[in-house]
Amino acid sequence: MDVFMKGLSKAKEGVVAAAEKTKQGVAEAAGKTKEGVLYVGSKTKEGVVHGVATVAEKTKEQVTNVGGAVVTGVTAVAQKTVEGAGSIAAATGFVKKDQLGKNEEGAPQEGILEDMPVDPDNEAYEMPSEEGYQDYEPEA
């Protein structure tokens, strides 16, 4: 019985440690998101679009440190934060509304985080759909 109880105690310690790591990862992701939003706020009209992409990228980098179902929630929060940063930029006159959601080359930025393969159960990952990809044929 002692062996059984000791095993359960060790398992509990492992769960607590994993929860603490997840909590730490979420806190880091939130900190990076805040950094990115402050970065966007300090940019001029020309830099705002690039700044919004930076927020998304920093958040995406930190999301990889967070495991399990938390990833889905962090990704949703990050996307809403990026959308909010863009709205703030438009409201303050840093950028025109028609410039939001495009990178410096004018290509749409939507789907940055949505296409990231995420499995809350950590069982399997699927690649994003290939609808947006084109076949590449090298020139002879």
Rank of each mutant, 00 (worst) to 15 (best):
Y125P: 15
A56F: 15
Q79F: 06
G36C: 02
V49M: 14
G36P: 04
K32W: 15
A85V: 10
E57V: 09
G7N: 14
Q99F: 11
T44R: 02
G47P: 02
G73N: 12
T75R: 07
A76C: 14
G67A: 06
K23T: 06
A78M: 14
T22Y: 03
Q99C: 11
M1I: 00
A27I: 12
V49E: 08
E28I: 06
G25V: 02
V15F: 04
I112R: 15
S9K: 14
I88M: 08
G106L: 12
V71T: 00
P138V: 11
G36W: 12
F94N: 08
L100I: 09
G47I: 09
M1D: 02
S129P: 03
Y136T: 01
I88A: 07
L113S: 13
E20P: 00
K10Q: 06
E131T: 09
T44V: 07
G41A: 00
P138N: 13
G14R: 14
G31D: 00
E126V: 02
A140C: 10
V118P: 05
M127N: 08
G111E: 10
V16Q: 04
V26L: 09
A91H: 10
Q134H: 03
G73F: 14
E130M: 06
Y39W: 12
T59Y: 00
A85I: 15
K97R: 05
H50Q: 02
V55N: 01
G84W: 11
A11C: 01
E137F: 04
F94M: 09
D2L: 06
T75Q: 08
E105P: 11
V37K: 01
A19T: 04
E105S: 09
V118S: 06
E57D: 06
K32L: 15
E131I: 13
G86K: 09
T33S: 05
K12A: 06
E137T: 06
G41D: 00
A107P: 06
N122D: 13
D121S: 13
S87I: 05
M1N: 00
E137G: 11
E20G: 04
G51D: 02
I88S: 07
V66M: 14
K6R: 06
G73Q: 14
A17Y: 11
N65F: 12
E110M: 10
M116A: 15
E130V: 02
V55G: 02
G25C: 15
V16L: 09
Q79R: 01
K43H: 04
E137W: 04
D2G: 01
A78Y: 13
G67R: 01
H50R: 14
G47S: 14
G68K: 15
G101P: 00
Q62I: 06
A18C: 06
A91L: 12
P108V: 15
M1E: 00
D119C: 06
K6F: 08
Y136P: 10
D98H: 10
V37S: 01
K96M: 15
E123Q: 05
T33D: 00
V74L: 12
A69N: 11
E110L: 01
K21W: 05
Y39A: 02
A19N: 01
V52M: 02
G14P: 01
K34P: 01
K10P: 00
Q62M: 09
